[in-house]
Design a binder for these strands. Structure first.
Lengths: 182, 182
DNA sequence: CCTTACATGTAACAAGTTACATGATTAG
DNA sequence: CTAATCATGTAACTTGTTACATGTAAGG
């Protein structure tokens, strides 16, 4: 049920096309919520049917027309109501940890490859977060409440990834220790 | 696709009934993978059909009979093959962060309630992890490779939650600051 | 010519959630 | 009597993934 609210939250910030929303989920919302373009278009269709959105067709001379979606009053009310209800933590589902759990069937080489890839992914993410921090949230104390809260969502990503990278170091040290005395 | 491998990893450790597997997902695997009993039974049925598992019916005098599932050779091979293939990071989908993103529609009171609940959940989890650490992983350096890797899966949970609790403090401080100068 | 970005979808399937359903035993 | 634990499922629905499908324009 949360996808629709993630979409509505994105549209509350600014009206957008399905394409733009997909991009937002991949970039600025990467640490918040994820959705593929197929999910976005399907859900936009449903929200439109229920009058939570309005479409504005934007004609373009050089490219195919695009549809810009706007949140309606009814949509904003739904979102606001959802925001006021308590949410529980998303359950953990991490394939890398499943691998560690079945440790005796897992080769150290395969594990090291996964670790290296994970590290690269995280470093790239972290670099991206830092660039956003730098361009949008220079002096957090001086920002409006709205942006300070958005900044804290970003901080969540930064702190989780930082802790994740520390954990990888610990795991790599464990592997090195195991290699030493097999 | 990963649910089946999480199940097989659990069964590789020790044969179990659907009920026991559900419990493991809720307790010892809480920081690794999550699955409801409905998912467990459905997937056990599928794995059985494909000869990845064997059933042993355990007759009980006082309670209804139970079915204990064992991983077959074919199942273990599948698992091993999956373990050797690289996995990507699970995408982030966190309703609490969606709320922060829509900060201007979110009341501070509602947010504080969510934060308090999250904190309680995390503290309970952390306490549970620490108890496992204490009873199963006393001197990690002396454990076998298998258990050291399992221990590192547990450490992941501990470090993520610890970072999460720090983040909540930061967010609470932000809210206090906003209350001071509205 | 080829790839990337723009732009929008459908179909099939796997995974996850919520609700419903049944029945025994044990502890309070 | 009532709730919790043990034990196993079905049905309906929502979400998420993968593959397929189509077409324009810009840049190298």
């Amino acid at each position: 049920m949360a996808l629709r609210y993630a979409l509505m939250a994105a549209l509350h910030e600014a009206p957008a096309t399905g394409y733009e929303l997909t991009q937002r989920f991949r970039s600025r919302l990467a640490n918040v919520w994820n959705a593929s373009h197929q999910q976005v278009y399907r859900e936009l269709g449903r929200l439109l049917e229920q009058n939570k959105l309005l479409v504005e067709t934007v004609e373009q001379s050089d490219r195919p027309d695009k549809k810009r979606y706007h949140l309606t009053l009814s949509g904003r009310k739904d979102l606001q109501e959802w925001l006021s209800k308590p949410q529980s933590r998303p359950p953990v589902r991490d394939p890398l940890l499943v691998k560690l759990f079945a440790g005796d069937l897992l080769s150290s080489d395969a594990l090291k490859r996964d670790l290296e890839k994970t590290k690269q992914d995280w470093l790239a993410q972290l670099g991206y977060f830092r660039s956003i921090e730098h361009t949008y949230f220079r002096q957090p104390e001086n920002l409006s409440r709205h942006y300070r809260l958005q900044y804290m969502a970003l901080r969540h990503g930064v702190t989780q990834i930082t802790a994740g990278l520390e954990w990888i170091k610990e795991l790599e040290a464990t592997l090195a220790d195991l290699d030493k005395t097999p």
